[in-house]
Design a protein around this nucleic acid. Structure first.
Lengths: 344, 344
DNA sequence: CTGAAAGCGCTAACAC
DNA sequence: GTGTTAGCGCTTTCAG
């Protein structure tokens, strides 16, 4: 057991109050007293007890990150940025997985942990905005992704509609005419896939092209592979596939290549998220790149502000994104350098 | 603020002791009393205060996962398994990143957080086994990966020497003769890369083949790409590359393919870790697959046992692995189904 | 500037 | 079976 305040105080010949002042560096302490106390602290290897501090009414220094799955590259990269940036706020990140299950999301939102953290950052898949607002008085919540919650909750997202429309326009401009979208998730109340579909439809409508939409259960490579198989069966002449996640796109591309299709010759493939795998895929994957460090920073700032001002109006923070045009969608010759389409 | 024990007790007309008994389900309580108390608990939405419990001397219910980087696919997948399994132990996972930096590892090991968690699971890169044993009396530590710590610390790992030797033998058996290894990290005190190199050398020596070893700084795709570029410059006739991580292998393969080499025709590529990207890469990546769920389970069990018995002798837990032979190393015709090489 | 002491919410030893 | 109460380590109000 390590030393406590009282032991330090006794040994330094001062009161606990003084030691506490030295530790927190808050109130004024006579320089020589401070030095003496500090020496004893070092000697005894004193470390303040976080549980006691927390109980006394302070922060726990913990922020829960509630995600469908941490092993997914997109969420993994995001978690990395969050963990890095959290340090600046003296927060430690706690990771909880939901598998996208509504009941599990509910549990984690209302459970014991939700009360012991200073705040939650969550990417909800199963719970609707309505469900999310209905919760007991616990730590503040910041949502990741589109929420359409009627402005009832803090959330941070990119402009998915523009992003999807821009990427679809790129496919059209490079000569594609039968452009399928893979990744609609009508069973999810979460609005992200719907927004991307909206952008896709808008761009196609502008060009007067037909649409072809493929629904998926989840966003993994295997779902992309299955969707591609279905797609090729239904429409062998498809010449571009826009997937709503890079993982879907990687799965789809895998199937296309093993069927002997040339990418991007016969088929353009594009994704969403800009995960590292896509950059090193063969061919490298065209994608929408959300500014992940900015998402992480925004989520933390938002939480900090909410903590400071409980009844500020909820905020919707829009984070920049850009198009990464790579060889999975750009035929031969010279690869255009990635164009920038910044939002806000 | 939610209700506390005393308020529940008053409202139910019993003492806090009784309410505590009901909540913890420990001591005997008269059925009707229990029911009455339970009703009040539900009414008031009472939730035990974790900080108070922890302060009182109990567990915090927190386990720190200290990793070089959570965004790396291998660690991400591992973290996912750990988070899932942790629930069975009533633990919540807390994630801290070191970037592989020794100083940062030291900080996290000795810092305030290390005292407020029930235990730590760590994958050390910068700190030597000696450094790791020298630490203040805080929560128990379980190491991930080879440690060679002279049996001073609990750790869980696969048999890296056998795994690397088996994979190298596979390359030899399929006709490769100039087999390079990419991924040595002589600057790291961490023994993992060294063990893999050992297995590689053993297999080559058995076959009387020359070795060609390439050192890398880190284990990312870009390092693999750079290493491959160097390798092709030094030895254009290399016919196989065994990378000590799948990420390295993916980077290396990317370079090989963009140089117009055929994989596996001209060059076999193999990795280590069996991350999901490798399964959907083009061609799919041959690799060593550690049993990640087993690693997660072993780490948690080990921690739980250490908590129960502080002075049990430290344990080295060896987890099974198998070879996944895929098209990046197996030429044309039929792909042999993945052979199994189980350890222990 | 420093000291004494209350109390955060809980568990468990000690009564009855 | 149930009630009373000390005390975990800290912050902070109130005195001095």
């Amino acid at each position: 057991m390590s030393a406590n305040l009282r032991q330090v105080a006794e040994r330094a010949g001062v009161s606990v109050r003084t030691v506490s002042n030295v530790v927190s560096g808050f109130a004024l302490v006579a320089p020589q007293t401070r030095e003496r106390v500090q020496r004893v602290i070092d000697e005894l290897g004193y470390r303040p007890n976080a549980a006691a501090r927390h109980l006394r009414g302070g922060r726990s220094g913990l922020v829960a990150l509630v995600l469908p799955e941490i092993a997914s590259p997109y969420f993994g990269e995001l978690a990395g940025h969050l963990a890095d940036r959290a340090e600046a706020y003296a927060w430690t990140l706690l990771v909880q997985q939901t598998g996208g299950d509504a009941e599990r999301e509910r549990e984690l939102l209302d459970g014991v942990r939700a009360q012991t953290v200073d705040g939650l950052i969550m990417s909800p898949w199963g719970l609707s905005p309505g469900d999310l607002t209905r919760r007991p008085d616990s730590a503040p919540l910041v949502l990741l992704g589109e929420q359409d919650a009627g402005g009832l909750l803090d959330h941070v997202a990119i402009d998915n509609v523009s992003a999807a429309a821009d990427l679809t326009r790129h496919l059209i401009e490079t000569g594609r005419r039968r452009i399928a979208a893979v990744g609609l998730q009508p069973h999810l109340v979460n609005g992200t896939a719907a927004r991307r579909a909206q952008g896709y439809r808008r761009a196609l409508a502008e060009a007067g092209l037909p649409r072809h939409e493929i629904t998926v259960e989840r966003l993994h490579r295997e779902d992309g592979a299955a969707a591609m198989t279905r797609l090729l069966g239904a429409d062998p002449d498809v010449d571009a596939v826009f997937c709503f996640s890079d993982q879907l796109a990687l799965g789809a591309m895998h199937v296309a290549l093993s069927r002997g299709l040339s990418v991007p010759g016969d088929l353009a493939v594009a994704g969403f998220d800009d995960i590292e795998d896509g950059r090193y895929a063969n061919p490298a994957l065209t994608t929408v790149a959300p500014d992940k460090p900015a998402i992480a920073e925004a989520a933390l700032t938002c939480l900090a502000q909410r903590l400071a001002d409980r009844d500020d109006p909820p905020r919707r923070i829009v984070v920049p994104h850009r198009l990464e045009l790579r060889s999975s969608s750009v035929r031969a010759e010279r690869t255009p350098s990635s164009s920038r389409h910044r939002t806000q």
